[in-house]
Amino acid sequence: MMMPCKRATELMSQSQDRELTLNERLQLKFHLLICNGCARCDKQMKLMREAIKQLDKH
């Protein structure tokens, strides 16, 4: 069973704040392979993190 997108977004957020368990990582990876909405969301969360790092320059 594929995890719901909402759960996937929780895990992608948490992956920026803690180490996910192996099981969580695999489930998330699998989800991102088949769900382009979540794959984009994941990229965008990473972009936002990068943007905050550069915030002072702007």
């Binding site: 719901p4 997108c5 909402k6 909405g37 979540c38 984009r40 965008q44 972009l47």
Partner: peptide, 13 residues
């Protein structure tokens, strides 16, 4: 069911 609503699904940036 926990999946994106059609109108809310992230677009390609």
């Amino acid at each position: 069911n926990g999946h994106w609503k059609k109108t809310q699904k992230p677009s390609d940036w």
